[in-house]
Design a protein around this nucleic acid. Structure first.
Length: 945
RNA sequence: GGGCUAGUAGCUCAGUUGGUUAGAGCGCACCCCUGAUAAGGGUGAGGUCGGAGGUUCGAGUCCCCCCUGGCCCA
């Protein structure tokens, strides 16, 4: 029996293919990468699309530090899907990858390494320029190392980009463009220098941007301090009472170290304040804070003497508890009753709000704290040279001893920390460079903020749409942009100091330095004299040049640009410089870039060009672990990209990315990659089935086209090609709309349902059992061929390796699917197909019921015949197709049947070759039971040898 | 503390302007096939829609409050 079986097997056209079931992606993908690099695929594709409609995309630069993580994987793969989906749609889409190279993280790491290797002392013995150059050399090497590493990893993710010509923010030509962008802003009159409290990292002795801060819990002393009034009678008058001693104003602070810089007490005009007798002492606090203040001081007796409005207190003066000066009570809107005393300690040199009050009241922006976090000589002796953190307990002790301390208690609160050194930052007033968002531009008179609000109102698209509100909310309230840093690893701000203490920097002088940077790199700032840097500068033709300018007397200043200004100029330094197109059609990054790169690209572009650098912003969410918590390296819940690539391969990672609802949080877990692997395998096996039945198809492409394009509208082929056409439209639209998940699901459903569960099952019999070169089989093969091509082209943006592997199996090893463009697919399909599919569902259900009918149930569908009710004679023309789709031996349609009936055909003979029990089965001359079709096929294959 | 955002079957997600028994895929269970075979097919069981109120004849969908995440700020 088994021998006979084997014999029949030999006469069948069974599937055969070199396209393996197991993808072995980890092993095979690197070969694809190598081949594409060797063939210069990126250049080939951009050349092939020369002159086509363009889609302008711009890559935001990742920071050149460390190995890539899953976040990069998501970001880069999404971008690659965007680019490749435009390419397969027939558009030109260039992609220049970039890296952010300067900045604190690299410098901090390099400094740590230098310290660890004991070189830091030698470094500190060098003169300033030499020292900075030594640091810069080490930083550049470090950045280069990681660019190389990350580039390899990104290529391993099968991304297509101009990796031979990336943009690096540390390249001279890039630096030149950044400084030129700056020159334009200087020309607009919105760049200024100002003393201003900024977040200051004591550890790194630099001002920090918001983006460089981490908020962490910290324990600080929370103190309630009495400031003695100068004039008891004036206070008494404000409250309209008599007093027998000098009252105090009580303030509250969690930064006792800022008390030496106190220059005012702020109250709110409309709040009610009370004159209290607390355990015998006269004190002023907000009426609603009395209980809280009394409680924290463990006060034994509380007596309210009188009340007045805050406005009545304004103008009164008080004596500083340990500095020799008197200061005023002032009014401020931000005073609240949420905590403290309702009287706010104000130090204009140490707080943003205090600073605003100080400016308004004409106070000094007094800051006695030096860059290293210690006090200068303007404070009392006992604090000289003391660090602010040491000062906290000292100040508390001093206040206690002098009787000014009402209460002190440690509290835990959220406090800004330097993201890199993990040390707490302070607010400290320093001279910084700013780009003003509320200063009118010389051209047009609008402010950057107004322009940004206008641009984001309607001329920029947001995906998802809520990004608009988010970004506009940020723009509405953002402060002036502090663009200066006091570090070595960065692009110098080309400002010079003059002998009279003034600062020299005009649009023209900045352009001259930009030119020098473009020629010789920004290292020139450290290696060259001002006269060399300004060699192309002509004071005579610079209307902004100060009177009596003496170039020989200039000295270079030491600030560098905030790295965000560098990356925020990329629309100019890359897209305009390389004539790639600006405004750009799409920027796509994580949603944190609403405040980062998006906003900080928008502002300079508006200042320079008057318009937004992007037409659309796409954002994706952030990776969270399996419990929905944020990913952290230290938490040990981060997955390594290298491990993922070894484990599941890039195509599976890409398949996973394409299926994500990426605008929200993205749960990352190894198990999810394995699940993506299973669904990838489904797609792969479906393609494999198509390919494996094309092994013996030796028709020209014209013949194949003729075969599939002329199928009968009622044939299975017409149906499946119609479905494929729908799929192609749906997927291409989804790509266009940036809805990759939709494309992913459509492709999967098509493979899983339309092909695997329905079409492939239906055509197996004819593929395997029909004569190899019969018209019906060839037509089916032509259809499979077409389906395989459609699937390859549609999956090209996602399954980069697999689509190409299949394409090469189809068209030979010299072919490359990545040069392909989607082709229209049109075939006439009968309108009654929905009825047929409905009938199929009903038959399958009926067969299942027949199967479960007990131990005598019909278990194999080929043992069954179907009597199909067909009241309108609509199904009869599809009987052959329906029979094939249900895998039954016989299907008869008639208006005489009232419901689906299953015929038990087990008494009829089965064909030994096709296992079908069709009525033509009979004993043949060789003794075998075969159907007519199979008997013919056997004879044919024998005569063919 | 503020702005934006999310919370629907074990998992990933759909759920149109409020309207019949809340859908899909995966996974799971059971069955078939062994001529896609480390494959393929069929059937089925899973949900008080984060929680509490409210509006309405009717709410996953609208309003309010709360809880738990995420991003960005303070």
């Amino acid at each position: 029996m088994s021998e006979t079986k084997t014999n029949w097997k030999k006469t069948l056209n069974l599937p055969r293919t070199s396209f393996p079931m197991r993808a072995n992606l980890a092993q095979n993908e690197p070969a694809s990468v190598k081949r594409w690099l060797k063939e210069s695929l990126y250049d080939k594709v951009t050349e092939a699309r020369e002159g086509c409609e363009e889609f302008i995309f711009h890559d935001g630069p990742p920071y050149a530090n460390g190995s890539i993580h899953v976040g990069h994987l998501l970001n880069k793969v999404l971008k690659d899907i965007i680019v490749r989906s435009r390419l397969v749609a027939g558009k030109q889409c260039k992609f220049v990858p970039g890296w952010d190279c300067h900045g604190l993280p690299i410098e901090h790491k390099v400094m740590t390494e230098l310290a660890d290797s004991g070189k830091i002392e030698k470094l500190n013995s060098l003169d300033e320029s030499t020292r900075r150059m030594a640091i810069r050399r080490a930083c550049r090497q470090d950045a280069e190392k990681y660019i190389k590493l990350q580039r390899g990893q990104m290529q391993r993710l099968l991304t297509l980009a101009d990796y031979d010509n990336p943009y690096l923010t540390m390249n001279p030509r890039y630096e030149q463009r950044v400084v030129e962008t700056f020159a334009d802003l200087v020309m607009q009159g919105i760049v200024f220098r100002q003393l201003k409290p900024v977040h200051w990292s004591i550890a790194n002795e630099t001002a920090l941007a918001e983006a460089e801060l981490d908020y962490e819990d910290r324990t600080d002393p929370s103190v309630f301090v009495d400031f003695e009034a100068c004039d008891a009678a004036a206070v008494a008058a404000a409250f309209d009472v008599e007093v027998d001693q000098t009252p105090s104003f009580m303030i509250w602070t969690t930064t006792p170290w800022t008390l030496p810089a106190n220059l005012a007490i702020a109250v709110h005009d409309r709040l009610t304040y009370a004159l209290m007798r607390l355990d015998g002492a006269l004190t002023v606090v907000a009426e609603d804070r009395i209980d809280a203040v009394a409680a924290v001081g463990e006060t034994e007796s509380v007596e309210k003497l009188a009340t007045c409005k805050g406005s009545d207190l304004v103008g009164l003066t008080y004596r500083h508890p340990f500095c020799d000066r008197t200061s005023p009570v002032v009014s401020a809107e931000y005073v609240t009753l949420e905590d403290g005393t309702g009287l706010v300690h104000t130090a204009p040199g140490h707080g943003v709000e205090d600073y605003g009050t100080g400016l308004r009241e004409g106070m000094d922006i007094y800051c006695p704290v030096k860059g290293d976090g210690t006090y200068d000589e303007t404070v009392p002796d006992w604090l000289h040279g003391c660090s602010v953190w040491e000062a906290n307990p000292k100040v508390v002790e001093h206040l206690k001893a002098s009787g000014h301390l009402h209460a002190s208690k440690d509290i835990v609160h959220s406090y800004p920390h330097d993201g890199r050194s993990k040390t707490p930052v302070i607010f400290r007033a320093t001279e910084q460079w700013f780009i003003g968002v509320d200063r009118p531009l010389r051209d047009g008179g609008q402010t950057l903020r107004d322009m940004a609000m206008d641009a984001t109102r309607e001329s920029v698209d947001f995906v998802p749409e809520w990004g608009r509100n988010r970004m506009r909310g940020m723009l509405e309230s953002r402060p002036d942009w502090c663009i200066s840093r006091q570090r070595a690893w960065g692009l110098p701000i080309p400002a010079f100091s003059m002998p009279d203490g003034g600062v020299f920097m005009t649009a023209a002088s900045v352009r001259a330095v930009a030119h020098a940077f473009g020629e010789r790199g920004s290292d020139a700032w450290f290696n060259e004299e001002p006269s060399q840097l300004l060699s192309t500068y002509d004071p005579g033709s610079d209307p902004d040049a100060p009177d009596g300018l003496n170039l020989a007397a200039l000295e270079k200043m030491h600030d560098i640009f905030d790295v965000w200004f560098e990356s925020g100029s990329s629309w100019n330094a890359v897209m305009r410089a390389r004539e790639l197109g600006c405004p750009v059609d799409l920027y796509s990054e994580g949603s944190d870039q609403h405040r980062g790169w998006f906003q900080l690209s928008l502002l300079p572009a508006l200042g320079v060009t008057g318009q937004s650098p992007f037409r659309c912003l796409l954002t994706h969410g952030f990776m969270v672990d399996r419990h929905g918590r944020k990913m952290s390296k230290s938490g040990g819940n981060a997955l390594s990209v290298d491990d993922l690539l070894k484990d599941v391969g890039a195509d599976v990672c890409r398949w996973w990315v394409s299926g994500l609802a990426f605008e929200n949080d993205i749960r990352v877990d190894l198990e999810l990659f394995h699940l993506a692997g299973e669904s990838y395998r489904k797609v792969r096996n479906t393609i494999r089935f198509l390919l494996s039945n094309l092994d013996d198809l030796e028709c020209s492409s014209a013949e194949i086209h003729e075969l599939w394009s002329t199928v009968s509208p009622r044939s299975l082929e017409a149906w499946v090609l119609g479905e494929a056409g729908r799929l192609q439209t749906e997927v291409m639209e989804a790509y266009e709309q940036l809805e990759f998940r939709k494309a992913h699901l459509a492709i999967f459903d098509f493979c899983n349902e339309t092909l695997s569960a329905i079409y492939c099952v239906a055509v197996k019999d004819r593929l395997y059992c029909d004569q190899a070169n019969s018209e019906r089989r060839r037509r089916t093969q032509a259809t499979l061929h077409r389906l395989a091509e459609v699937l390859c082209r549609l999956t090209t943006p996602i399954l980069v390796h697999t689509a190409d592997e299949a394409w090469r199996a189809l068209h030979g090893d010299d072919a490359c699917v990545h040069l392909e463009v989607i082709q229209p697919l049109q075939v006439t399909v009968d309108k009654d197909w929905p009825l047929v599919m409905e009938a199929r569902e009903m038959v399958l259900k009926a067969l299942e019921e027949a199967r479960e009918a007990g131990k005598d149930g019909i278990e194999k569908s080929l043992d069954a015949g179907i009597l199909m009710p067909d009241p309108e004679d609509q199904l009869a023309p599809f009987a052959e197709a329906l029979e094939a789709m249900c895998e039954v031996s016989r299907l008869t349609c008639s208006k005489d049947y009232s419901e689906i009936k299953i015929e038990d055909l087990r008494a009829e003979p089965a064909c030994e070759r096709s296992w079908r029990r069709d009525q033509t089965v009979q004993a043949r001359e060789n003794g075998a039971m075969l159907s007519d079709r199979d008997w013919d096929a056997v004879q044919q294959s024998l005569s063919d040898g």
